[in-house]
Nucleic acid binder design. Structure first.
Lengths: 155, 155
DNA sequence: GTTGAAATGACCTACAC
DNA sequence: GTGTAGGTCATTTCAAC
């Protein structure tokens, strides 16, 4: 299932992660190839699902979304029906940027980006009203030390 | 500092977040405007730092990065020198995708993407050897329920 | 501020190696 | 597989409204 990538593929991916707006010629020059082979490789990696999406990263603070919370959730409910409802609640809320089901005593972690603590509380109250949750701990980010979507490619 | 955005700006941002590869004509049609004004707005939002980056999102599993950990860190050290060293350690490690300084009894949270549990242990051993850390809890993701870089724009 | 046209440059294909 | 060439289409500038 995992597609085989050579050194040039990885260089191309690194460049695209850095700046997807640059031209094929630029990328070709940087990776030591030329336009057509680079284009073919990119196309293959898109079709193979290695490149999932081309997008822009926005500045949360500039948009007034100044509060970022990590939410640790414990629940006593593990039935399929509850889980379905919970997943739907998370997926339908745009302020939930990430949600993972975990191993261990904490069941879920969420990353929630909102305008302020009050907006978080609105989110929180709505969530616990929609689905039964045993225990919630919210961790408030004071400072974003690092944030990248660039995956390490030295594989 | 926060730039004023109208409804059209927000529609443009939503479209770019969804797919930054589509043409200006397409975006213009969707937001009910035409090419040049859309282009001018995008340019302004880039220059104003609202649009920080154009990038591609890659599939971590396809790249063999099958393990995602959230790492909760407590430390007893709060001196500037220690912090400087810790920050540098995080920023220089590509497997650390996110790092936040927190309010409360947990001091930091990291998101770490690696190939497997063994690779996480290598990362962890190297980190605690480089900087003194009081207490570490690693939460292993079993399932990515949701993951998006798209910020909510109903501002 | 919007619109439209025109040139510059990128993309994507086809073909040669 | 890589490189070259050319048609098509998008981006960017500029002038007019």
């Amino acid at each position: 299932m995992s597609v085989r990538l050579d050194a040039i593929d990885r260089k191309i991916l690194a460049e695209l992660q850095r700046d997807a707006g640059q031209s094929l010629d630029e990328i070709a020059r940087k990776v030591g190839s030329s336009k057509t082979p680079v284009w073919n490789r990119v196309k293959k990696m898109r079709e193979g699902g290695i490149i999932k999406q081309t997008t822009v990263l926005l500045d949360a603070e500039a948009l007034g979304l100044e509060a970022c919370f990590f939410v640790l959730i414990r629940t006593s409910e593990h039935e399929a029906e509850w889980q379905e409802k919970f997943l739907h609640a998370l997926r339908s809320r745009p302020e939930v940027l990430e949600a993972h089901r975990l191993a261990g005593d904490i069941d879920y972690i969420l990353k929630v980006q909102v305008s302020n603590a009050r907006a978080y509380d609105v989110f929180y109250q709505a969530l616990i009203q929609e689905v039964r949750i045993h225990n919630v701990t919210a961790l408030l980010s004071m400072e974003e030390i690092k944030s990248t979507t660039a995956l390490p490619l030295a594989g």
